[in-house]
Design a protein around this nucleic acid. Sequence first.
DNA 1: TCTGGGGTCCTAGGACCC
DNA 2: TCTGGGGTCCTAGGACCC
Length: 447
Amino acid sequence: MSSSPTDRPTVDDAPILHVDLDAFFASVEILDDPTLAGRPIAVGGAGERGVIASASYEARRFGVRSGMPSVLARRRCPAMVILPGRFDRYEEYSRRFRDIVTDLTPMVEAIGLDELFADLRGLRRLGTDPVAAGWALRGRIENELHLDCGVGLARNKLFAKLASKRSKPSVVNGRITPGAGVVWVDPATERRWLAELPVEALWGVGPATAAKLHRLGLRWVRDLGAVDESTLATHVGPSMAATLVAYAHGDDRREVVVDRGAKSLGHDETFAKSLRTLNEVQIAARGHAAVVARALRAHHQLARTITLVVRFDDLRTVSRSQTLSFGVDDDGAIAMIGAALAETVELTQSVRLVGLYASSFLERGAHEIQLTLPMTIEAPSAREGIEAATRARQVGYEALRDAIDEVRQRFGRSAVGTVAELDEHGLQVASQRGRNAFGPDAGPPAT
DNA sequence: TCTGGGGTCCTAGGACCC
DNA sequence: TCTGGGGTCCTAGGACCC
């Protein structure tokens, strides 16, 4: 591993680049309010159940870390300001960040808002110097976005990410040490370096897996390199065992995937005050349904599976899902399914979180995408545009009607009478009657 | 200290079909 | 008539990442 400017790896030595913005959310807040500069600040939930999403390095000096409950963070650093977060703003910065890297190569894979991988192999014939390119990216991100970042360069994703982590500022004994900025992992020495890292350093090893590995006497990556894979598999499963053994040998075949389409969309909320009744859970689920439906439409996706998640006060989490034979993106249909799923959850104690997720996306048919394209891009004629819009809307109506039919079949005819306008009052009446609002035995529509 | 909200992937069991 | 095995889909739960 090296960051010395005399090292000149080629693209073949270091085809994968990883960039990670420093304290991203907190840094954006400081940019927008310079009076916060130099102070311990964090972005996250300030309430009793909040957690820290991002902390400035000044806050990290006090031991504040992302993922930490805000209650503990405040105890460690009482003077810290916790800001609620402005995700539209972070997304804007994130987009500009990606645009800068995309100027170098289109082969970019975003991982969350604040980090990404790039595959530099397309630049081989240009004779691009990866280390110089890394410094150039860093310079542009600093000049144009006023954000700091760490850059890692290596043979594969595993080493590139470890390298960018190594390139960042660190906090030791309450002191901030500046990072190297750009770190290249030399293939000649990468295995030696990796072997000395703790197993937790590997991607995919969290607290649960680390505990299992420790129980097996596996503390260091070098231990994983010597273990029998089939034995390991009996403890962590075949897939994890194969991955860990491969990583321990420095072997990571993961490619940089541009534009990985979302496989699920969802929304959840942890309540400051836990919910106690089915009615409250259903109201929450219906509220989430509107958010999820909007997201589906924004992504031009129809979801076949709707999943309701309920987390109780003791953090026990249960899920209920239903897969339809067709896709939905309509508020009412998704709310209906979410509310019905809620009835199958035994509310043995108070509920701190309700989540609603949509998955099993039906690629909207190619024909449908083409139907909408002429309106915005090609617009061969106004007549065709209007025809296309009408057709697209009709397809939407058909999907909704199918949804209503299936819900009716599954949950009883009466359930559908109130689909479109079923409001909180309707649910309340149904529940006060002591009836299953959507079950086969449900009475006549509540409204 | 006691754990958010956005996601991904894996596992295991049951239903169903051939 | 009984039985088996493989493949696929669905459901539920768990772990992990940023």
